[in-house]
Nucleic acid binder design. Structure first.
Lengths: 150, 150
DNA sequence: ATTTTATAGTTGTATATACAAATGTATTGT
DNA sequence: ACAATACATTTGTATATACAACTATAAAAT
């Protein structure tokens, strides 16, 4: 669907406005369907994001500010986000011995198992959109976005 | 900045995942800077969006479900969004005489004046990103996004 | 005409988010 | 060593959002 139809715009938009709207709208579509995917697992996209960051640590714990900086959306309140994961036993949290200001957050086996269960679904989600473009177009899209951000 | 650096990813990502992440990340950058723009005006992006939809009505009122369907992000609770605008006298709300289930929402002079003040800033925001690409690239980006959504 | 179903919007409630202030620990300067 | 400053995280509070239940009106069915 064209962006103009999606937001029922009647008038022709300048290309700058249209591009911004198009990116915003596309991301909305993506996150809506991703939310659907996660709903049965009682996991928010942010929680999922944190789990995936922790898995990326390959056993090493991550502290709060590391999680924060690797998150796609820099949410305030990583604390409460991790709280939720703790309640579900998907992570453990302990004071870092080397620097007692920091917290060591580690993903649990249960967390890893949950991610493993989600992996194929997340991949299918990613690929369902990617499949609409060929490889060259995908690379082009990535390059254009990067250049667009400045 | 490359997406891999932005989220401090060490490993090479499959192109499908990367694209999705890139769109999400780009939109985050955009909305972050748009938020900054609106902050001095005590207006949320959603409130701004509603005002702009109402201006697009050119005097004609819009009812709630029309506002809802034209919004970029389909938020639940358009009611409370409009409540906020009402409190600031940016819109008026009255029961639609033709169909008493519906509400007629109209932007006020104050609302129009606020939009007018914002217009150049919003346009500058839009153009600051668009300026990083030439016209052909912008059209290409829009087409790729549309195709990507499927 | 009366019941049923559909539509439009609002409200209750639980949860999430943003932002600032507070807490506790480490580092630096004197 | 002690005060000042910086850093890492948490907590308080106000606001926003999601979702379901509710109210009111309109349209359709019997």
């Amino acid at each position: 669907m064209k962006i103009e139809d999606a937001i029922k715009s009647t008038t022709e938009m300048p290309i700058g406005k249209k591009t911004l709207l198009n990116i915003t709208y596309t991301q909305n579509i993506l996150s809506e369907s991703f939310n659907e995917l996660l709903k049965p697992y009682d996991l928010s996209p942010e929680q999922f994001n944190v789990l995936r960051i922790l898995r990326g640590q390959k056993g090493k714990p991550a502290n709060m500010c590391v999680i924060q900086e690797r998150m796609i959306a820099k949410t305030s309140n990583t604390t409460r986000l991790v709280d939720k994961l703790l309640l579900k036993d998907l992570v453990i949290r302990e004071v870092c011995t080397a620097n007692r200001r920091k917290m060591d957050i580690t993903i649990t086996e249960k967390g890893l198992a949950l991610l493993k269960e989600l992996d194929p679904k997340v991949e299918a989600h990613e690929n369902s959109y990617a499949a609409n473009l060929d490889t060259d177009e995908l690379h082009l899209l990535n390059n254009l976005l990067e250049k667009y951000r400045g």
